[in-house]
Computed example of a mutant assay.
Amino acid sequence: MSGEGINQMAIANALSAGVCLTTEELARLTGLERKRVAMTCCRLVSRDWIDRLERGCFVLSEEGRRALANGEIIKTGPKGPLTQGIPRRPKRRTVRDKLWYAIRLKKKFTLGDLIELTGSSHANAARYVQALAGAGYLTTLRREAGFAPTSNGYCRWSLTDDPGSKTLVLRAKGRTIFDPNRNETRDVKLGGRVRWAP
């Protein structure tokens, strides 16, 4: 295993606790220079071993957790043949990908939790959460108290049906959800209003 492979394994192991760590925290834990940590994290993201929840803050991905649990070791160098007919383009991670990952990571959350973790707009996060709840993936929990004296409080949700790591997709203008993990489509029954806990 080359030096670059050692660096990548050091970062992956530092993230094994499951919390989001900044490049500065990873540099302190691994003893690597901050610039080297940033470059190594980029390589780990391209390998799908880690995810960037926000700028400069990384967590171990589901693929990374599985690989560490199986004792896999990163070896640097070319993957597969040196020539290929059609170059592979990495899948761009969307805000919905980040929202679904954050929901699975938190299990119980408010809308404010998701917005803070993913950088999503309030409207986008609210629409996605409301659709997931309407399709039976989320359950509404007891409200959290609000800050204003006249506040009715804020909704909290719990992930009660977790089909897998692939992002659930809203279709038909939010009336259905396609689950690529189970290859099934569910109707969305909407009702009520989503309140935002900042």
Rank of each mutant, 00 (worst) to 15 (best):
I115E: 13
G134Y: 04
R66L: 11
E116V: 10
G191I: 03
R96D: 00
A67M: 05
T30M: 01
T167P: 02
T40K: 01
E4A: 12
S158C: 11
K35A: 15
T30G: 08
D161K: 14
G192R: 12
L60C: 02
A135N: 03
T40Y: 01
R88P: 11
Q130V: 01
A145C: 05
Q84M: 13
E24G: 03
R127T: 10
L82H: 07
R28E: 11
C20N: 10
K79A: 14
A17F: 12
L99R: 00
A12P: 04
Y128R: 01
G85A: 13
S16F: 02
G31N: 03
K108L: 06
C155T: 06
Y154E: 03
C57M: 13
R66V: 15
P78L: 08
C155D: 14
A102D: 06
V37L: 06
G31Q: 04
L60R: 00
F58E: 04
T94G: 07
N7I: 04
A38L: 09
C155Q: 13
A172K: 12
S46I: 05
N183C: 06
A123K: 02
I74A: 11
G80H: 11
K108W: 02
L168V: 13
E62A: 10
T140W: 05
R65E: 14
P198R: 15
R52Q: 15
A14R: 03
R193M: 13
T118R: 07
S158E: 12
D48A: 10
G164T: 05
V169T: 06
L159V: 10
R92Q: 07
R92G: 02
H122R: 14
D51A: 08
D187S: 14
R89H: 10
V37P: 01
P149I: 11
A125L: 08
L29P: 00
P81V: 02
L117W: 09
R43Y: 12
S151W: 15
G192F: 10
A131K: 01
L68H: 02
R55S: 09
G64H: 02
I6F: 08
G119V: 09
R36W: 07
R34V: 10
I11W: 07
I115Q: 15
A14F: 08
G191C: 03
F147I: 15
G112N: 15
L170V: 05
R142M: 15
E33S: 06
N7V: 04
A67I: 01
A67Q: 06
G191D: 02
E54M: 05
W100R: 00
E62I: 08
E24Y: 05
E116Q: 14
T30W: 03
R193K: 13
K107G: 03
V45M: 15
R34H: 13
L170P: 15
G119F: 12
E63F: 05
P81W: 04
I86T: 12
Y137E: 00
G146F: 12
S46H: 11
P180M: 09
K166G: 03
G146I: 14
G134V: 04
G64F: 02
P78Q: 06
F147W: 12
L29D: 06
